[in-house]
Design a protein around this nucleic acid. Structure first.
Length: 821
RNA sequence: GCCGGGGUGGCGGAAUUGGUAGACGCAAGGGACUUAAAAUCCCUCUCCGAUUUCUCGGAGUGCCGGUUCAAAUCCGGCCCUCGGCACCA
């Protein structure tokens, strides 16, 4: 038995593919398919997750190729950003040097994988010819009023010494270094993604090829809630104080008003009063708390009385005004009406501080007594103690109360979103500079497009994070002329969040070398949208939201033909180590794809990955995974060694059934059935069952004579099916059979339905639902005849003997079930 | 707490969507070949109980119950597990 010499064969084909330009994109596609996998972030080498991701994408690209599509299948590098910069700092290296080094290493690994990329379109986000256009994207948002600099309370990571977007805070910690995130009031650049909240939410329905869980996650993240804003008035000043509520029906139950500590109003209210000192102390204390501390005290509702009162616009009641920890400043108005009878948080708070509890919604058939309540009643009921609204079902009351406050000019309908504007500025060096100039006379001035890129200064720069933008200290960078008045002015010292870079890269692939614009409308039109996008689920509420947002903005600006980047998304599962843990450098449990490929070959490694589990499932990798697939490949290789020359004209034609013997017909039928099922499995990205079927076919091929027209027919189809998953081997065998062109230029096998028709059908015979035998009959046999025949079966007879057949279920072409008593 | 995925042999996983549970592979055991080893090939491989052989009977897809001629698959309740969000008023 020969051993498949994967090293020579794989490198041979990779060379030939490159030389012949097999994967070069057709500039004028007739039938296009844009296959995209999420590009890799540059850190060391690619890992097993990338290996899986890119191998899956490669199968689909090759499949579409063989179906006659023109493919755009590019790859590039997400190269700016904190992780790369941190890695460079640790190694005392220049971030650019480090990043480009990583790319070099990773690119080599990808090339070893032999993926069907068009390498001519590679993009690297940290190079000026790319980030020039990231800055252009910024300008487009700026022009449209969607980029603004605003002072607000933002997330601050003390570890990274920079601000973070909301999407980069995971359970109160930094997504990258997991330091506890604190709040700071800073002037920062934001993208107004909230302006697109409704559209981002609404068009989720159009993303029919997206996994439900991702859509749900985005929906929850956007967090739309429809409610009412009601204006209370402050007792002393008479000034209005707006609260947002989804339960206006409980307005008569308000017994206090709560203001978030961060809300500037909180300080104003107590100004000059005897409460001022204590309240300021409380505010300070609350703001200093990290998110984690605040959440951990979730049961202990905390607050302080301001000494001020508010007047309920409906009941005219006078209620206390408190500054309260559990109210979020950034949601709604940052002021909340406290209804302890019907909101659990307010209930706990009221109990703690002896604030009255009022029942204004009665559950059906009950009579709640506030003094005996153990928890708030939050379900619908009937309105009571609510003036003229008494007796109205609370669900109807919501609308009635809202109408009433609108009529009186004391409120309005209001939609709130949890989604916040995207904070895109970073106080770090390794990013695309924000193309903005601050001029004393003209204020904030954008850099004209013709002056792009604003180059990131290189050389001897102290970029160690200190909490303020390193670029602010680089005079050659900051000192510039105002593009409006030509006076001396300062460049904005912040750089952009790396997620800005990755929110438009898929467009650049369509026209990667364009020096005059980010992409030509014409070329985008040819390829957009992405036909299938594959990546990890961890980006559900980050990148996958951002790239939809930027796409919508560029669509509105007239640059794109469609306002969604892709209608088909696939999330592959993670690859974990043998203990079920995420692989990482710090844990030292990384498995190197390079090593894997060097030891087993690319094809056996790919097959092992595919065979392990369906693509969406997470897998716990073990080293023995390649054993079975290596054996499989060796068997195939040996099988084909005995192939002799054979007239090539008839190789793929289905032989006439009349010329085949029974065994051959059976195999032919199986092959065609599998062709059909494999097609379905490819579309579902369920490759494990395909590999199993290929193994099954191989066992049959090993038993038959291959040097005749039937053998050749089976073999050719088998190799075509195989080639998607083991492309090097597929190509090698194809050549061995002396076909001239690449196998990937040949056509994908199609199931011949006429072969599938069986002449004989084996019926399962059950008695009382238990399998008792099987009986073969000619396919056309009718129900009665089948029943009769199965009844006569020796084994079945035994079970039927002496019993009355009450019922006989007949399922055509499948089974007969006798129900006996 | 809310939302979503999942629980099938020693292991990874199949099951044509309600119709033969355990395909395919790994590991393990036995045999063949070999001076030997590796490689390869053949057989066994859910559990329990019969049986001299080809075998036969019963149970079985997290647990309990239901629908059905028939349930891994559908319905109700529970347990476990993995993700996501989490004071959003």
């Amino acid at each position: 038995m020969l051993k498949y010499p994967f090293k020579e064969i794989e490198s041979k084909w990779q060379k030939i593919w490159e030389e012949t330009g097999l994967y070069k994109t057709n500039e004028n596609p007739r039938k296009k398919f844009y296959m995209l996998e999420m590009f890799a972030y540059t850190s060391g080498d690619i890992h097993m997750g990338h290996f899986r991701n890119y191998a899956i994408g490669d199968v689909i690209a090759r499949y579409k190729m063989m179906q006659g599509y023109d493919i755009l299948h590019p790859i590039g590098w997400d190269a700016f950003g904190l992780p790369a910069e941190e890695a460079a700092i640790t190694r005392s290296l220049d971030p650019e040097k480090w990043t480009l080094g990583c790319i070099e290493v990773s690119r080599n690994t990808l090339k070893k994988m032999g993926i069907s990329y068009d390498w001519n379109r590679e993009v690297i986000t940290c190079l000026p010819n790319y980030y020039k256009w990231t800055q252009w994207v910024f300008l487009k948002l700026f022009e449209r009023g969607l980029a603004y600099q605003g002072e607000s309370l933002v997330n601050w990571c003390p570890g990274c010494k920079t601000v973070l977007a909301n999407e980069q805070v995971e359970q109160g910690t930094c997504w990258r270094c997991h330091s506890q995130v604190t709040k700071k009031t800073l002037k920062q650049w934001f993208f107004k993604i909230t302006e697109y909240a409704e559209r981002l939410l609404k068009s989720l329905d159009r993303l029919t090829g997206w996994p439900e869980n991702v859509k749900t996650m985005q929906k929850n993240w956007i967090g739309k809630s429809i409610g009412t804003e009601i204006d209370f008035s402050m007792e002393k000043t008479g000034k209005l104080l707006s609260v947002f509520t989804t339960r206006p029906d409980t307005i008569y139950g308000v017994t206090f008003i709560a203001i978030a500590p961060e809300n500037p109003l909180a300080k104003k209210i107590v100004e000059g009063t005897r409460y001022e000192k204590e309240v300021l102390k409380y505010i300070e204390k609350s703001i200093l708390k990290t998110e984690i501390e605040r959440v951990s005290t979730v049961t202990e509702k905390d607050g302080i009385f301001t000494g001020e009162y508010a007047i309920n616009p409906l009941s005219r009641e006078r209620v206390q005004l408190w500054v309260v920890d559990y109210v979020l400043a950034s949601y709604g108005t940052g002021v909340v009406m406290g209804v302890p009878g019907h909101d659990q948080r307010d209930f706990e708070f009221a109990r703690r501080y002896d604030i009255p509890i009022k029942v204004v919604i009665q559950p059906p058939g009950q009579n709640l007594d506030p003094s005996e309540m153990k928890e708030a009643y939050t379900e619908p009921g009937t309105m009571v103690n609510s003036g003229s609204f008494d007796g109205i079902p609370s669900e109807i009351g919501i609308k009635r109360v809202t109408d009433y406050v609108i009529e009186k000019g004391r409120g309005r309908e209001k939609v709130n979103y949890k989604l916040r504007d995207w904070l895109i500025s970073r106080q770090r060096y390794w990013g695309a500079p924000i193309p903005i100039i601050h001029c004393e006379k003209c204020g904030i001035v954008s850099v004209p497009e013709k002056d792009l890129p604003v180059l990131l200064p290189k050389g001897n720069i102290d970029f160690i994070p200190k909490g303020r933008s390193p670029l602010a200290d680089v005079k050659e960078f900051t000192e510039t002329k105002c593009s409006k008045c030509q006076d001396m002015a300062q460049r904005d010292p912040d750089t952009m969040d790396t997620f800005v870079c990755s929110s438009w890269y898929f467009l650049r692939y369509t026209d990667a070398h364009n020096d005059c614009e980010p992409f030509s409308k014409d070329k985008v039109k040819k390829w957009f949208p992405i036909d299938l996008y594959i990546g990890g689920v961890e980006h559900a509420c980050g990148h996958l939201l951002y790239f939809r947002f930027i796409t919508k903005v560029l669509f509105d600006a007239g640059y794109l033909p469609i306002d969604e980047p892709t209608f088909n998304l696939f999330n592959h599962g993670m690859v974990l180590d043998k203990n079920g843990e995420v692989m990482s450098k710090s844990k030292g449990n990384l498995i190197s794809p390079v090593e894997l490929m060097e030891n087993n070959g690319v094809d056996a490694s790919r097959l092992a990955m595919f065979f392990f589990a369906p693509s969406e499932r997470e897998i716990i990798w073990n080293e023995e995974s390649t054993t079975g697939t290596t054996r499989f490949i060796n068997r195939i290789y040996n099988l084909v060694q005995n192939i002799k020359e054979y007239p090539l004209t008839q190789e793929t034609q289905l032989p006439k059934t009349s010329e085949l013997n029974e065994e051959q017909i059976r195999l032919c039928r199986k092959l065609n059935k599998y062709i059909k099922y494999i097609e379905q499995d490819i579309v579902a990205l369920q490759f494990n069952t395909i590999i199993a079927k290929l193994m099954d076919i191989l066992t049959d091929l090993e038993k038959i004579e291959l040097n005749n027209s039937f053998g050749r027919y089976c073999l050719v189809n088998f190799i075509k099916l195989l080639a998607l998953f083991a492309p090097h081997l597929g190509e090698e065998l194809w050549q061995k059979m002396e076909f001239g062109e690449s196998i990937f230029k040949s056509s994908w096998p199609v199931c011949d339905e006429s072969v599938l028709k069986e002449e004989e059908i084996t019926y399962i015979v059950e008695v009382n639902g238990k399998v008792r035998g099987r009986v073969s009959v000619p396919a056309e046999t009718g129900e009665e005849e089948v029943k009769k025949k199965t009844m006569e079966n020796e084994k079945v007879k035994g079970y039927l003997a002496g019993k009355e057949i009450k019922k006989a279920i007949f399922v055509p072409k499948k089974l007969v079930n006798f129900v006996v008593g």
